[in-house]
Design a protein around this nucleic acid. Structure first.
Lengths: 288, 288
DNA sequence: CAACATATGGAATAAAAATTCCATATTTCC
DNA sequence: GGAAATATGGAATTTTTATTCCATATGTTG
């Protein structure tokens, strides 16, 4: 990092000492990092409440890093903001440069930004085309299923793996058809009536996924397909088809909308099952 | 501009009455207009000095416009800033309102929509806080690595699995540390100088991931950490830390921002390697 | 598990900031 | 030019905010 401002320097110092800090002060450090852009207009008390500590802990924190108290530490943030706010033209400049320079000199940073942009658009469309009826139907199926199988390959496998992880926190029995040892067939084999299969596949549809969907359908299991269109090969075997049109940029297809939809599906199911996980920043031991 | 914010409205009111204001109060009005963007962090005294008047004049000014005093008037500026600077704050608010406002009649459809919304906000923040330097550094490391290892557990495993899939399309040798058979240790064991490790972990950090990061670091391999903050335990072992602050809603943490960042990383790398996959909607046979 | 070091939070105190009060200055209008 | 109305700024007061003090709690070490 070329030029770091006072705040960055300070936060670095905090990061260095972080490990040796008492529990509460660590909490404050995290809070500061998280809210670095608005510390300048917070009172000690805001910081204290935000960090779940007593105001005096905040003062001690500041003193530990060489300031006379909170006020002096806060000044660092305030001044940094002021410096930044004054040459406000620079932001406008940057935007213009990016837009103007776009056609040829695409550097990887711009590529990254564009890609993220594409993902945002994808999510916008997801909301817009959100099909309430189908979504509900999908939740219904999952709610009623005794066992839930999940299958996807290649690009979509990550999604399946996430769903399996998430559903693992419910009472349902969950089977991820991961094809380990080439055993797709064997893994789906025991599916039957009363079960549900979540099959995720996009063009050019993976044959393992199609196979599983077909088998599940034959066995009278319910099939929830997540795919791109009602016309694809998955549609034939699906009881509910959730449509996702992923954005693509630079010839790469995004994955954000699909995963977002799947998470939404899971959250909805969790609420339906009255599974209320602990409120808060992280969900117990399940994250990683 | 369609909807004007509170500050604009207020300044308009001031402009209207300007002519009928006593000399000093006019001075204050000019000062406010000139410094509207930093009033939020000024004291009455700053404004008074800046306008060459007595502090009480500033209070009188505020009262003339219907506020109880300077503090109340300042709040207008502060709140306006907060709304702009922290769309995330407003997001938290919105979520809280949704939850608090209609505790019972939250149906799963609304939940799903809110969740998708949260993801969108998350992507907005991702763009906003995008750290160019670090991102480039990460691409550099990957470009130079001979072999690339990827590790993540539980919630983040899906991400790792996607990265492994994507990198599989480059010339790099890719190793997904998936812990199959409890063999995290064995899988990371052969990492060494010249290699890179991508480690993804969020609170409460998975110990397998930490172990791999530590080992990689000891072995002089480069470590790219994808995590929530510079203060977490991954930071100590990382050469580059890419920060992602996932939105969370209904006590579930989103995954969209993380996966979006990882895809962007891959796209950037692909371009760097001058790997130009076929233009078009889907990338050959690799999708599923 | 005792003795010590360290961390924590309630309450008191100090400091800073905002507001009010009021005596004086300035302007306005007849 | 003088009376009334309005504006101004010094100082006191009130309110808010920050800091310190200290008793208690918690953790650590031998």
């Amino acid at each position: 990092m070329a030029v770091s401002n006072a705040v960055d320097q300070f936060m670095r110092r905090v990061a260095d000492e972080f490990e040796s800090l008492p529990r509460q002060l660590q909490g404050i450090a995290r809070y500061l990092e998280q809210h670095r852009s608005s510390i300048m207009l917070q009172k000690v008390n805001d910081v204290a409440v935000g960090s779940n500590v007593h105001p005096s802990a905040v003062v001690r924190f500041a003193q530990r890093f060489g300031y006379s108290g909170f006020s002096e530490m806060q000044a660092v943030f305030r001044d940094a903001f002021r410096e930044r706010a004054e040459p406000s033209g620079s932001y406008q400049h940057r935007i213009r440069r990016v837009i103007a320079g776009r056609p040829e000199q695409l550097d990887e940073t711009q590529i990254a930004r564009s890609f993220i942009d594409a993902c945002r658009v994808g999510l916008d469309e997801l909301v817009e085309r959100f099909d309430v009826t189908r979504f509900r139907a999908a939740v219904d199926l999952l709610e009623q299923a005794e066992q839930i199988y999940i299958v996807a390959v290649r690009r979509s496998f990550a999604i399946a793996s996430y769903i399996a992880y998430a559903l693992g926190h419910t009472q349902k029995r969950v089977h991820l058809v991961d094809g380990l040892g080439g055993m797709h067939r064997e893994q789906i084999h025991s599916i039957g009536k009363g079960d549900a299969l979540i099959a995720i596949s996009f063009p050019p549809y993976g044959k393992e996924t199609l196979f599983c969907a077909r088998l599940a359908h034959q066995r009278k299991a319910k099939v929830i397909a997540i795919s791109e269109s009602d016309l694809g090969p998955l549609a034939a075997h699906a009881n509910v088809l959730l449509k996702v049109e992923e954005a693509s940029a630079f010839a790469f297809r995004a994955l954000t909308s699909t995963i977002c939809l799947c998470q939404a599906l899971f959250v909805a199911l969790a609420y339906r099952l009255e599974l209320k996980p602990n409120e808060g920043a992280h969900t117990g031991d399940y994250d990683a």
